[in-house]
Computed example of a mutant assay.
Amino acid sequence: MASISFADIQAAHHRIQHKIKRTPLLESTLLNRWLGQRIIFKADCLQTVGAFKIRGATNFVACLKEQGNLPDHIVANSSGNHAQAVACAAKEFGIPATIFAAKTISEVKAAATRSYGAELKLFETRKEADIAVAEAAREPGTVWIPPYNHADIIAGQGTCALEAIEDAGHADAIFAPCGGGGLLSGSFITARELLPNAKVIGSEPLLANDAARSIQSGQIETLMETPDTLADGAATPCLGDLTFPYIQQLDEFYEVNEQQIAYWTQWLQHLLKLHVEPTCAMSMAAVVSWALSAPPGQTAIVLITGGNISQQSMLKIWQTDYLLQPPNITEQE
C-alpha cells in the first residue's frame, strides 16, 4: 500500500501552484460572535472548475508528465466535481478525456464537463459506469484517474489545507467533508506536520454514513445503494484502502442529517455571500459542536470544497427558509 508524506504534498503544491488558483480565506464577524470562536473559511468554491478536485487531478497528470508517461487518453468515472476536474486537467495537458457517469449526474456538472472538451458517457446506474470505465482503462495508452484512492490524488488534495494553514498562520481545528476520504487524508497529513496539536475533524451525511460505519467496525464498509442526500459530493460508496487508515486517525467524526445540511447551506451562502455546495456546508454541524465544547477564542479552518449546485438541488435546499431567525446554536449539536 502506498504511503503519502507531507513531502509529497509539498511537491504537489510546487507542481500545480501555477496551474490552479490560490483561493482566499474568508470569515464572518457575525458567525464568530455567535460561536465565540474564530472560523476561517478556505473558499475553494472559487477554485478552477469550482471545486478542490482540480488539485488532485492536475497533480496526477503533472506527475505523469514529469515521468515522461503522458497517456494518449484519460478516463475517469464520476458524477460530480471529479468529472469536471479530470476534464479540465486533461485539456490543460492536451489529452483527450472520456468521463463515465450515471444518468443522475447533475445537469450543471455534466454541462461543465463537456465544456472542457471531455466526452461524457452516461449509464443507467453508477455500477454500470464503473464497469465501463474499467473496460476502457484496459485500452493501450489509456490512464484511469481515480477520484480519491491514489497517492497523487491525495497529495494534490492536501494542498488545500497546506495553503489554508500557511495563510491563516494558526488553527486549533481543521474541518473537511468526507466522501472517499482523499481531501481529509491529505488534510490530516498536512495538519499533523504543520499544526500537530490541531484537531482534524470530518463529517459525512447520515444517509451516506459508510465512513462512520467503517470507523466503528474497523473495516471498510460499502453502501449498497446510491444514497439520496443533498451532499452529493459525499455520496461515494466506500472509502479506499489508502484513505481509510487516515480516516481512522481523525480526532472526531460526525454524521449530519439532511435538515442540518440544508440549514447550513443557506446560512453559509448568506453569511459568506458565496455559492456553497451542501457537501461542504455540512461541516458546519461539526463546527458548531466543536465550538460549544472548546474553550472560547479558538480558531478553526473550514475547507469550503465546492460551489457547483444544480437547480434541482437548490429547490430542495430552499424548501424551507431557515434565514427568518438567527441560528439557535444550541440546537445544532
Rank of each mutant, 00 (worst) to 15 (best):
L206K: 15
F188Q: 01
D167W: 11
W144F: 10
E163S: 07
E135R: 13
A168M: 14
V200E: 00
I220C: 08
I153M: 11
R213L: 11
A155W: 05
E221H: 12
E135F: 03
G202Q: 05
G169H: 08
I153V: 14
I220D: 04
P146G: 00
P177D: 02
D210H: 15
C160E: 00
G169I: 15
L194S: 04
P227R: 08
D130M: 11
G186E: 01
N209C: 15
W144A: 02
L223Q: 10
I189Q: 01
A129H: 09
I154D: 01
L194N: 00
A164S: 07
D210V: 10
G156R: 05
R138E: 15
P205C: 10
A137H: 14
E163L: 12
A212R: 09
F175I: 13
G202D: 00
Q219N: 09
A231M: 10
I165E: 01
F175V: 11
G179A: 03
G141P: 14
T142H: 03
I189H: 00
E128S: 11
E128F: 09
D130N: 10
I153C: 04
A211M: 12
A168C: 15
L194W: 08
E135G: 00
A208N: 04
T226C: 04
I215C: 05
A134I: 06
C160Y: 02
W144D: 06
C178P: 01
A171Q: 01
R138A: 08
L206C: 05
I220T: 10
H170Q: 12
L207N: 03
D172Q: 12
